[in-house]
Design a binder for these strands. Sequence first.
DNA 1: GTCTATACGCCGATAGAC
DNA 2: GTCTATCGGCGTATAGAC
Lengths: 199, 199
Amino acid sequence: MFMENKTIASKTITQDEILLASLKLFSEKGYFNTSLTDIKDAVNIKTTSGIYQHFKNKQAIAEELFDNILDSLSISIDDIRRRNRKASEQLREIVDLLFKLTDEAPEVIQFLLVVNKKEILPESKLLLETVPFNKIRRVIQNGIKDGEIRSIDSLLAYNYFFGIINHTLSLVLSGAFSKPADSYQSHAWQAAWGSISKK
Amino acid sequence: MFMENKTIASKTITQDEILLASLKLFSEKGYFNTSLTDIKDAVNIKTTSGIYQHFKNKQAIAEELFDNILDSLSISIDDIRRRNRKASEQLREIVDLLFKLTDEAPEVIQFLLVVNKKEILPESKLLLETVPFNKIRRVIQNGIKDGEIRSIDSLLAYNYFFGIINHTLSLVLSGAFSKPADSYQSHAWQAAWGSISKK
DNA sequence: GTCTATACGCCGATAGAC
DNA sequence: GTCTATCGGCGTATAGAC
């Protein structure tokens, strides 16, 4: 899940290797500061030609990355919703996932939160309009219906809650917060949940 | 202030015209999707050569933009601190400024919040480390000292407060919030202040 | 599926006349 | 300060042999 590294013996380059290397480079240097030459070097082939065996062009790599990450996220959210009934519990686990990923796979969260999707893929949807984020909004809507979350527009609640969560993760990723994400989680949760919970 | 448009009669291109046009383009399409040719067209000169009369290179334009915006912001914050004693009042006015700018000069806030400074100028400081943001942190520190804001790390308080404020502005700028920033201000303020205020 | 070779467009940037 | 002209190079992308 979330594009784990597979150590492979063979020399042939797989699509996943390209994706993994690109994700790392894109999140470190940014999409536009990463050339196909950089990617080619990272996957250890001699020319950029090999990349075109797997992807139409550079954009297609980024597109596939977004798709994969959003799919993984969507599946995780489904799982979380299945295992928990209350919106507070579901949000708690989503937050847990995001903080865990920030420590264990920072490239994924960096790519998701810091990289500007619209700048790379101008024709694509806003993140907010993608499947996993719609699912999160539904969690919040249920929380409002059940009286756990105060009666405000669900997008507004999303905004306050993930404003705090995402900003916290961004500061960890930028190095402004020096400790692992993990150590900021419980306080960030309290602040975020406090901003939308009833009473 | 904040790079207001000056309608000039003469045909000679000024530095400010280049800055203004670049700011608009950078915030609309992103820095890397904007070529010097785009800028040249926007300021209505025939070749890109003219740009080099005023700026060493493309990066220098972005650098100057950041400097100017941060300077303006810094001056405004000084003014706000002079006119108000309490941290809550000072933050209130800073929020007021940011929301007003989002409606009246969205390019400025887009450039500040959405454009990734580190991707354009990898050697530059984090936004958080610049003068105006240090001043904001000092406002928060004073609020903690005076008992207005709860006793937490000032960076943490900054994080919660501006997590909500910035996320709100981002959603307005992205179009996810369809009304002007103005209409979200008072609720965003309440949520943000509520996340750090004592009691 | 990986290589060699190559094309080529775009973009950033410079020199120098006016 | 604006223009013409021009450059070098990088980065993307393709054709075709192995």
